[in-house]
Design a protein around this nucleic acid. Sequence first.
DNA 1: CAGTGGTCTAGACCACGTC
DNA 2: ACGTGGTCTAGACCACTGC
Lengths: 237, 237
Amino acid sequence: MAKRHAKYMQIKEHLLRGIASRRFRDSLPSENELAQKFGVSRMTARRALSDLELEGYALRIPGKGTFVQNRRSTQGFFRVRPFRKHAEEHHVTPRTRVLEVTVVEPPKEVAERLRCRQTILVRRLHYFEEEPVRFETRYLRSDLCADILWENLEFESIHEILIHKLNLPLTQVWQRLEAVGVPEEVASLFGVPSGSPAFRMERVTYTFEEPVTRVEYFMRGELYAFEDTFCPQLENV
Amino acid sequence: MAKRHAKYMQIKEHLLRGIASRRFRDSLPSENELAQKFGVSRMTARRALSDLELEGYALRIPGKGTFVQNRRSTQGFFRVRPFRKHAEEHHVTPRTRVLEVTVVEPPKEVAERLRCRQTILVRRLHYFEEEPVRFETRYLRSDLCADILWENLEFESIHEILIHKLNLPLTQVWQRLEAVGVPEEVASLFGVPSGSPAFRMERVTYTFEEPVTRVEYFMRGELYAFEDTFCPQLENV
DNA sequence: CAGTGGTCTAGACCACGTC
DNA sequence: ACGTGGTCTAGACCACTGC
């Protein structure tokens, strides 16, 4: 649909990269500024800004301007939720142990999703207090994420690193959630019987149509739950 | 925002009235037709049609045309999803067996959520083809939903009955999703070993701040998954 | 080929907010 | 008065579909 070479798409990408390093309510360029800067008509610059508002990244106020918008409210249930924030909301101390960081050729299923044969593999175990609750197996495209090897993955959210340090704004997500019994390998890490109930989530994250990382989580069923309140649309007639 | 007297709004209203009496996949007027008919420029006619697509009422296909879209496409992960629709999307034949419909005093936990001591209890088992996949235990406030006793709960979605027959628009939802092992009672209904992995979902539905119904689902883990694609907002700093 | 939607231009007028 | 976003025009070129 939205072709990547369209001018308004390029302007959107430029703005999204800017938004990643700005704060809530910071001002964004006006339609006229953008039109002049990119040498396009005002309608084209406008299209970029309006799209961002529709997608929730910006707030436009007639007579005032366009501002970075940051409501966390709507995605709710399946929001991409960094582990530390999850922990904060439950008032427990989070801890992360890095089990493995290597450069590998990924399994072919992952290679297809990431359209890439060179990846960084990260395995981490996440704790609430001293209790292991989530096991993470993540592949990152090494052409895009090589710099992540320099980061401290015990204390920093990979999500945040991608967005703010590697300048890879998170623009699209595919994910799948299952209820499973934990496989043996994970069970021993969790210290629970093999087959205990757990969530399994698989997620692929994109920057502008470009896949960046694929992650698989196992989350202990007794300790994890998704909870949310929202307002659905009224159904059609 | 969108002023009612804007020309594109008038065209939208005209189209929406038309859509109500058309069928899924019926063709809608083209941009040029609308521009001529309403004496506006193509960009204005286009705005009306594009808006309808964004709002889920229409599907636009380059080179072909614009068509009435009926299913709400935005299928968020946790959309309130009637069972039959879920089945349709997976191309399997759904079936529902009603196990119990009684008037009861609910457990105190449910009574608190519904703020009510008189409820209708419905237990149903849902099948894909001949395979049981979901078990439902639902309490409905009898002061609001008494008429549901007259409905055929084997063929009709309770969700639809509440909205369209009892005139209880669904304005808010609270829900919680867990990964659990199925309890014995449910395991025997499913025909699986007790403790097999499953989703457990609890949901309370409101009409204008007024709780209407509380439902608990068990869904077989091997047969159920939530999958979605979406565009997240950037996270806060 | 003609028709469709997708993008884009270079102007225009308006209502609104700030100064 | 000036800048902002909201609407609108009358053209244009493109890629795609169906015939």
